[in-house]
Structure formats: structure tokens, C-alpha cells
Nucleic acid binder design. Structure first.
Lengths: 156, 156
DNA sequence: CAGTATCCGGTGCGATACTG
DNA sequence: CAGTATCGCACCGGATACTG
């Protein structure tokens, strides 16, 4: 697991870049709500309970990064409005979201148990976030190794 | 995927609780470095480049939550010091970390490619973070459904 | 309903200097 | 080497009021 002494810094770091976008407070909560089917400003606001202006900026940056997309809709009798829908890019965050939640479920569990479970639509079995390789399927953490990728850059 | 109108709020929310601990700036970077084998204060500091006092508080809260553990060591000729090692609980964050990084690799890619790759130690194949159910293996996002768990609490 | 505008307090974070 | 102490500012985020 050790990367024998080399250092790769934080530039050209996908994790860093990812966190810059989704690492702000509330953002992942917004995303979870979007995954739950939430689409409207006030629905988001009530369900996660953050300040309205903060929500507004969060939604804006998520749209800006193509994680959400505004979609016009019209309720009969009122004017046109926009709702926020997940893009493919946004939906792709499910795995990370599930992994984070799963960790919390396991190590910070509420005595009452998890309020929401992710299940396979077809069989109802619980869904787990796991690490896997194509040949061997699920891996334990001790089976992992790290190696320099194409964008590697030795610093030290 | 929609949770038919009900709202579950942010209390008793594993994601929220998880983010409260690992959602602060730098924390996940620290964890990544720990996974890379880093153990000493100054190694962390140089590799991620955050302020020393910030790093100190990050390490402290991680220790406090049992994600890192201080381990005494002694370099020949100098006094006893502590290093920070991942606990099982900390190592369990690998999946989330990998998922986040993978998303970044895919959607925010540096032209040069990812600097680090996670591979299966045994076969060298790339490791992917995926969602799976025990019976059917890997699932696509559209195959997921959400249902209320034991700790569910209807708010609206 | 879906935001924007404004104000303001707390603090996260960086820089720097100091200690054992 | 491994931190702690201090300072200061930017900015985050909450509250509230206002608008189409």
C-alpha cells in the first residue's frame, strides 16, 4: 500500500478537485435529496434545512459543474419555473454517497438504525458500496495496492 | 428511486454525521495520505500542504473519533514521538475515498491522467468502487431503490 | 413558489513565530 | 521533528426582508 517514499502532492489530484466541488457543506446533502427524487428549491430547503441563500449558491455551482441541470416546468395556473434534475454526471456520485453513508451507518450508527436503505429494485436485497476488480470481484482493503498512473509526477 | 413524498430530514442521517467528521477541508486528504502509508506530522504537512495548526486539529479530531490512533515510536538517538496510524475504522473509509477519487478521475480528469491508480495487489487490475447486491453483483444506478430502514421517521 | 439582496457574526484557515 | 500560540482576515453560513 505504501508508495515507497514518493510524494504526489495535491495538484493533479482528483480527490482534491472533487472535494472542491462537492466538499462544501450541504452539497452532498443536496445531492442525496436529488437522488431521493427532490427537484424543487423549497423541497430541498425544507428537507435539508439550510439557509436559502446558501442553497441557492449550492444549486448554482452544481448546475455550473453539470451535476444538476435546470429544467423548465409549468404547474397549471402558475408561471414557468425551473426544477433541478440530476445529470448523468450527478447520478454517478451515487457510489461515493452510498459509501460515505454506509460508513456512517456502520461506525456512527444511531441506535434506531439507518433511516434509509438502498436496495436492489429487483430483488430487494441491500446494496453495498464495495471495491472490486474485474477478475476477482470484491476485494478486501488489504488486497489493494497503489501505483503511479499516467499523470504521476514525482515531487520528492 | 423516489421516496413517495415522505421526508426524512437530516437528523439521524448517517451521511450528515459522516460529513461532520470527515467533511472538513483537508481531512480526506489526510486520510488519503494515511492510506498511502504516511504516518508522521511533517510528512502529512508537506504532502498535502495545509497550515500546521489546521493539520494538528485535523489529526486530533481523527484520533478522537478513532479513525487514526497515535502510536509511540523512537528513532535511534532522538526522543520518543508519536505517529498516526489508521485504525480499522479509518481504513474502512477507503471505499468512499476511492469512489470520490474515481468520480474525479472520470469527470474532472487532468489531461495527463490520474496520478495514482488503485490496483489489485494480486493481479494488478484496476480497482473500481461499485454498488452491488449479494445476489446479482454490480448494479447500475437505475437498478437501485430506496426504502425506509428501521430508524426511519416520517416528518411530513 | 423560487429565489435575490443585505447584513452580520463566527470561525475556518493561512501565515508566522515560538517551544521542547 | 512535532507540534502550540497568536493574529487577522476572508468567507461561510444564518436570519431576515424583499421581489416577480
Amino acid at each position: 500500500m505504501l508508495l515507497n517514499g514518493s510524494e504526489y502532492g495535491t495538484d493533479n489530484c482528483s480527490l482534491m478537485r472533487t472535494l472542491e466541488i462537492v466538499g462544501e457543506r450541504w452539497t452532498l446533502l443536496v445531492l442525496r435529496e436529488a437522488l431521493l427524487g427532490r427537484r424543487r428549491f423549497d423541497d430541498f430547503q425544507r428537507s435539508i434545512g439550510c439557509a436559502r441563500n446558501v442553497l441557492a449558491t449550492r444549486l448554482a455551482t452544481l448546475v455550473e459543474h453539470g451535476i444538476l441541470r435546470r429544467e423548465p416546468y409549468r404547474e397549471p395556473g402558475s408561471r414557468r419555473r425551473d426544477e433541478y434534475r440530476l445529470t448523468e454526471k450527478g447520478r454517478a456520485l451515487s457510489t461515493a454517497l452510498a459509501a460515505l453513508t454506509q460508513w456512517g451507518d456502520r461506525y456512527l450508527a444511531d441506535p434506531a438504525g439507518a433511516p434509509i436503505e438502498v436496495v436492489h429494485r429487483e430483488c430487494g436485497d441491500p446494496v453495498r458500496a464495495i471495491l472490486a476488480c474485474d477478475r476477482h470481484g470484491e476485494l478486501r482493503i488489504r488486497d489493494l495496492a497503489l501505483k503511479a498512473g499516467p499523470g504521476a509526477k514525482r515531487i520528492a
